[in-house]
């Protein structure tokens, strides 16, 4: 209980809200690095997942990336990249953690982009084609919006994982909220360490919640209703 008071006191100390080691700067650092990693990973992963999902070719690629991603632990990845960064004379407090985050963000995004495209009902695509839409129109106007919720789930999983992983970057001398945890631990400053852990936990939960709101806002309206029944109705009418 006394410790909880110390942590609260740490939070209410105005000096912890200012300067390069202040909470706002550390939160921003954390979000910047995480955002950059998710962005780079999205550029690499989403096109591949969408194309494989659209064409149905190269599914083995998606499943092997997914399996590989699960077997590669973030901490191991971070530490393995450090000697390589040192060898090629890159700053080992920034690049290895960024590399680890990008590599970790790729599997969930690639698999969900793929799964989203595969889940689009063939009937809807055929209906769109029957209405005279071009291949590009079908892709942009029908398949992508329908695949979007699943795709965004992948981005959400990746983002939460990346925010968590950047915490480990502090071990290699990186910035962000992990600094409080690592420095607090090293200096035996328990309130700082616990405050850092609480902030990181909150940031991860907030990231998850933010993507939840985004998913809700971008879900295609038609998906709110039971899709198969509605999709099949017109076909039955025509047949009759």
């Amino acid at each position: 209980m006394e410790l909880a008071g110390q942590v609260l006191a740490w939070f209410s100390d105005p000096t912890h809200w200012q300067g390069a080691d202040g909470i706002p700067v550390r939160v921003l650092e954390h979000l910047e690095a995480s955002g950059l990693a998710v962005f780079v990973a999205a550029l690499l992963a989403l096109p591949v997942g969408l194309v494989v999902g659209h064409t149905g070719r190269g599914a083995f690629l998606v499943s092997s990336v997914a399996n590989l991603g699960r077997a590669l632990p973030s901490f191991a990845l971070l530490l393995m990249l450090i000697p390589i960064a040192v060898d090629v004379q890159l700053d080992f407090s920034t690049w290895p953690i960024l590399g680890a985050m990008v590599l970790l963000a790729i599997p969930p995004m690639i698999t969900n982009a793929y799964a989203g495209m595969r889940a689009v009902e063939r009937e809807l695509v055929e209906a769109a084609r029957g209405m005279g839409m071009s291949a590009v129109q079908v892709l942009v106007g029908v398949e992508l919006p329908l695949a979007l919720p699943v795709l965004l789930t992948g981005v959400r999983l990746a983002a939460v994982q990346v925010v968590a992983t950047y915490t480990l970057g502090a071990v290699a001398g990186g910035g962000g909220l992990g600094r409080y945890i690592y420095d607090g631990f090293a200096r035996q400053d328990t309130p700082r360490m616990l405050a850092g852990a609480a902030l990181v936990a909150l940031l991860a939960i907030a990231t998850d919640a933010a993507f939840g709101v985004l998913a809700h806002a971008t879900a295609p309206r038609g998906l709110a209703q039971p899709l198969p029944g509605r999709a099949r109705q017109p076909a039955a009418d025509q047949a009759g």
């Binding site: 410790l3 939460v160 925010v163 968590a164 915490t167 852990a197 609480a198 991860a204 939960i205």
Partner: peptide
């Protein structure tokens, strides 16, 4: 789900006290 979302290092550290 909430437990799963908390970054591992943060969870371990929060248990230390």
């Amino acid at each position: 789900g909430v437990v799963y979302t908390i970054p591992s290092l943060a969870l371990f550290v929060l248990l230390i006290p």
